Amino acid sequence: MPTQRLSARGAAQESPMRKRAAIYDFGLILLLIFGGCCSNALALELTTRQLPASGTLLTLAQFVATTLIALLCELEWRSMYGWPVLWLRRPGVPLRRWLIQVVLYFITSILNNEAFAFHIPMSVHIVFRSGGMLVNMVLGYTVSGKRYSLLQLASVMLVTVGVIVATLSAAMPSASGPPSRHPMGDYMTGVALLSLALITSGCMGLFQEQTYAKYGREHWHEALFYSHLFSLPLFVLQSGALRQQIAHANQTPREWIGMCKSCQVLGFFIPSYYIKLALNVLTQLLCINGVNRLTSRVSSLSVSLILVVRKAVSLLISVVLLNHQTGSMGLWSGAAAVLVGTLGYSYGGLRHSTPSPKIKST
């Protein structure tokens, strides 16, 4: 009896500690998502505004940084000839599956970042990348044989209409902002690049889902590492564009990094583009960390809800705070349709996948 009382007392004392730890962990996740992801959207817009045609350089910097950070968790100590050495962990998924995903991920990233060269506003970029559910639904129905509820079908249609309305409204001159100085052909080329990115992203998601179903979802960090590592050699195909973009980045106005600008000691000058690029890479790492932590702790509906709110905050920051505009009615109505449709799709999927309770026979 005394032993049982002591164990019950210890459990009662441990419960508040677990609650505080859970609250701290969830607070850290929200800070990483809203701080990291929203800051990343801001840094991305500042970077692409200074050099719109720097998508390949931007993608390379993101891939190198993500590879180096993910490498830290993929190393382990091994013994070779009696000496301890750091070596890569044995992968839990065959590398050939990661190679297929690498090509799709590389193409998707390049297309998304190159679209900025064709004067796609960040607001459209945020809304458009939420429109991949139509592609995912078509691929899921035709390839995986999935079936969707009526609420999911209606939600996807709402999201698609919202993306179209927001995209077309951004191409029209706005009363709250300066008239567009870019040809419509350039804008539609950027839209085509984003559309292709949605297709490749949908194929990548389907392939990744099949991989996780076969080998388990605990390999997400391994996927993060190898998808970025194996993509690095592919940048050789973009070497000409990279040299040109690096030359343009080196020509941007120089800014002082250090303690004393007037006396020019304990510091150095650096092209201003690289400061924005470093900020973009850092905030992206924080964003990835937050999203992966969130996915592993809460339901898919909660993940969708939090990410939808995050995208809405990013849209407000881009349109109102950074560009000092009010945005058009078409943009806000399209964004609202996307947000409502995303939530409806997630909720419909949750109800569709939940089995109905069985009635016991008496």
Rank of each mutant, 00 (worst) to 15 (best):
M1E: 06
P2M: 01
G10S: 12
A11G: 04
Q13L: 15
Q13W: 13
E14C: 04
P16W: 11
M17V: 13
R18I: 06
I23Q: 08
D25G: 06
F26Q: 07
I29G: 02
L31I: 08
C38V: 15
S39P: 01
L42S: 05
A43D: 10
L44E: 10
E45T: 05
T48D: 00
G55R: 00
T56H: 04
T66C: 08
I69G: 00
L71R: 05
E74A: 03
L75W: 02
W77F: 15
W77P: 08
W83E: 13
W83H: 14
V85N: 11
L86Q: 10
L86M: 13
W87D: 15
V93M: 02
V102P: 04
V102D: 14
T108D: 13
I110N: 09
N112S: 09
N113L: 15
A115C: 09
A115P: 08
A117T: 06
F118T: 05
S123V: 10
H125P: 01
I126T: 10
F128V: 08
R129L: 01
S130M: 12
G131K: 01
M133A: 07
G140M: 12
Y141N: 06
T142R: 05
V143S: 04
V143A: 09
K146R: 13
R147G: 03
S155W: 00
M157L: 15
M157F: 11
I164G: 01
I164Q: 00
L168H: 12
S169W: 06
P183K: 03
M184K: 03
M184W: 08
G185N: 03
M188E: 06
A192N: 05
S201D: 14
M204G: 09
F207Q: 15
E209D: 14
T211Y: 00
R217W: 07
S227W: 04
F230C: 09
L232G: 07
L232N: 11
L237Q: 05
Q238P: 00
Q238K: 15
L242W: 04
R243P: 00
R243A: 13
Q244A: 11
N250D: 14
P253M: 11
P253D: 11
W256K: 04
I257D: 02
G258Q: 05
K261G: 06
S262A: 12
V265K: 10
L266S: 13
F268N: 00
F269K: 05
K276G: 11
A278W: 08
T283E: 07
N289R: 07
G290P: 01
N292P: 00
N292I: 00
R297V: 01
L301K: 02
V303T: 13
L305C: 04
I306K: 01
I306H: 03
V308N: 13
K311P: 00
L315K: 05
A335K: 00
A336Q: 03
A337K: 04
V340I: 15
L343R: 08
L343K: 11
S346N: 05
L350A: 14
R351F: 02
S353M: 09
S361Q: 11
